[in-house]
Design a protein around this nucleic acid. Structure first.
Length: 589
RNA sequence: GGGGCCGUAGUUAAGUCGGUUAUAACGCUGGCCUGUCAAGCCAGAGGGCGCGGGUUCGAGUCCCGUCGGCCCCGCCA
């Protein structure tokens, strides 16, 4: 191989090299064999260039080209030449040139492929995942992973420039009771004891602040043993950061700078500050805490107007501390019976008992509930919603959490259905002032909305004892186009407050001691005020690259059952291995 | 745990009311071919329909179960 040296990438051969002798190595993308002339598209990670084999120039080399097949790995030497008049390929970056090959060796052949390596593919995803190494040869995936690398570099550069230190934290950590289900790792040296893979490096980064590192970051794998979604893998990557001596605004402004740098890599220029919504505003206007603000279709509260309505569902909801809310779908009066049935099904799946609708027509309100409403109520509703002839009004009357969720989901569905969402927009919004606690009806206790280390807002501290649900947290999420791409908070830096929050969460003193004792102890020794954030790198990449699923931005993703169909993980292990770690496998129920 | 959609040559799909030998395109193999770039033309090989039962004279087609993939609910501090 000594004299076989690659002098440039195939995708980077240009007219400036005309006449030069170059060396290329790569894969045979395609062979066009004219019997006489043979054309080979040679591919490497930077692109394609056309090789020409002319039997009149060199019959021996031409003969070798005859046997080339798709995905053979070859090395060639040849002379760059401009293509003859009329044979330039404008669709190819290197389309003005070609390489007249003078020498070739086949470095490796290839078995026939299970699918073709081309940009657009309709091959089943499972097949692509089984042969992921072939799938990853496709240019779109190469581009996405290259961009991911650039984003990681931009992150490291920006944070380093701003005084952050990249510090690694353990992967074998202590299981914590709150939050997602842990991935457990048995300890051979401590029979019966288990490590957990980190759901995030949360406690370690806080402790690094206590240690005085002041500004920390890490691009780090996190693990949550929960069911998968298009935007959720059980192992995923966070850009994790933490800062000392800061408040919310410090974190937000530094991190907006990071987001600007990240998106610059995809050629997008962002102009912070980003929009802000409080949690209450987000839920009130959009029904969800991760609003897609690229389109309106906002929720309107009609509780005051309709609480005395003759429609029992409305009146009942209002009398039980519920709300009556609605959205107005412009032009929605054309929705068919089936459309409305679909929407009703969605509403029911999110907890509604039904879906009241009104079509505003020339003849007035066409609706199953029109007869229950007075003219004043109808007029007031239309006015509040800005509803005119041709519109469709959808109501939800229930406790606030249900009414908001139902309308929020309907809003998103209809936004997609009516193509109301401008595809090329990037709408960032910080959602702030989350509640600290939520009440879990099933478990009959308060649970942390963010996590148990999130500081309550100072002015709400008094409610900690009297009305925990009123306590707001110094927490913030960054939402992009309806997708939560980051979240963080200012942390509790006093052990007494931390102990009190654990108490509110129903975590007994002994349990808190057992699970987080090291943190409570650490908080006693001069903990600086601190806070931070973590961004979901996979989600950011998916949105940036217009991918339907984060799987397209992960080199080796898992299937929905959390398996890897290429390597066949997870898999059974030898009894000997189990014996060593004192594990006995129970029979499946 | 639940709901929905989907499994037919290597790949993507078609397959009517259950009925001769399961179609096509691309890919693959061979041949022809000197300016193609999804090269072209000709010929050929290749599957028994995810798997297991059942109904039937007869099952990709109907029924039951099961495995797998995707989307969603729950779950994801």
């Amino acid at each position: 191989m000594a004299e076989w040296r690659r002098t440039c990438y195939a995708g980077e051969v240009s007219t400036s090299q005309t006449g030069e002798k170059i060396g290329l190595m790569g894969w045979v993308q395609r062979r066009r064999d004219h019997g006489g002339l043979i054309f080979i598209d040679l591919r490497d990670r930077e692109g394609l260039v056309q090789l020409v084999f002319n039997p009149e120039t060199d019959s021996a080399v031409h003969e070798k080209a005859h046997n080339l097949r798709s995905e053979f790995v070859i090395a060639v030497k040849g002379v760059v030449q401009k293509r003859p008049e009329g044979t330039v390929n404008p669709d190819l970056k290197t389309g003005e040139v070609e390489v007249a090959v003078t020498e070739i060796i086949v470095l490796n052949d290839s078995a026939p492929l299970p699918f073709m390596i081309e940009d657009d593919t309709d091959v089943a995803e499972m097949t692509r995942l089984k042969y992921r190494y072939l799938d990853l040869r496709r240019a779109p995936l190469q581009r996405k992973l290259m961009l991911r690398h650039k984003v990681a570099m931009a992150t490291r550069n920006y944070l380093t420039r701003n005084g952050f230190l990249e510090i690694e934290t353990p992967v074998l950590t202590k299981s914590t009771p709150e939050g997602a289900r842990d991935y457990l790792v048995p300890s051979r040296l401590n029979p019966g004891a288990f490590y957990a893979l980190p759901q995030s490096p949360q406690l370690f980064k806080q402790i690094l602040m206590i240690s005085g590192f002041d500004r920390y970051f890490q691009i780090v794998k996190c693990f949550r043993d929960e069911d998968l979604r298009a935007d959720r893998q059980p192992e995923f990557t966070q850009i994790d950061a933490e800062m000392s001596f800061v408040d919310r605004e410090d974190v937000i402004s530094v991190m907006e700078g990071l987001v600007v740098e990240i998106f610059k890599e995809s050629g997008v220029v962002l102009a912070p500050p980003f929009a802000r919504l409080t949690y209450a505003e987000a839920v009130g206007r959009f029904g969800v805490d991760n609003p897609d603000t690229r389109f309106a279709l906002e929720l309107v509260d009609l509780t005051a107007l309709l609480s005395g309505s003759g429609f029992k569902v409305f009146a009942d909801a209002a009398s039980k501390k519920g709300v009556i809310k609605a959205i107005c779908v412009k032009g929605g009066a054309t929705f068919s019976r089936k459309d409305l049935d679909d929407l009703t099904e969605i509403a029911v799946s999110f907890g509604a008992k039904g879906l009241a609708w009104v079509k505003v027509t020339e003849e007035g309100w066409q609706s199953p509930i029109a007869k229950f409403l007075s003219d004043a109520e109808k007029e007031g509703t239309a006015k509040a919603l800005g509803a005119v002839t041709g519109d469709l009004i959808l109501f939800a009357a229930d406790k606030p959490s249900v009414a908001n969720t139902v309308l929020g989901r309907l809003r998103t569905n209809i936004g997609g259905r009516l193509d109301l969402i401008p595809k090329d927009r990037l709408n960032f919004v910080w959602v702030t002032d989350f509640p600290s606690f939520d009440y879990d009806d099933a478990e009959k206790r308060y649970v942390a909305v963010h996590h148990p280390f999130t500081a309550p807002m100072d002015e709400d501290l008094a409610y900690l004892d009297t009305d925990p649900l009123k306590v707001r947290a110094k927490a913030y999420d960054l939402v992009l186009n309806g997708s939560e791409i980051g979240g963080g908070s200012i942390r509790i830096h006093r052990s007494d407050v931390q102990a009190k929050v654990f108490e509110k969460l129903g975590i007994a003193k002994e349990e808190a001691e057992e699970r987080f004792g090291f943190l409570l102890e650490a908080l006693k020794y001069g903990t600086p005020p601190h806070g931070g954030i973590a961004f979901g790198l996979d989600r950011i990449m998916a949105i940036m690259t217009g991918s339907e699923s984060i799987r397209d931005c992960i080199a080796f993703p898992k299937t929905q059952k959390a398996t890897d169909v290429m390597s066949d993980a997870p898999s059974p292990v030898d009894q000997k291995q189990l014996d060593e770690i004192f594990i006995r496998v129970a029979k499946k129920a």
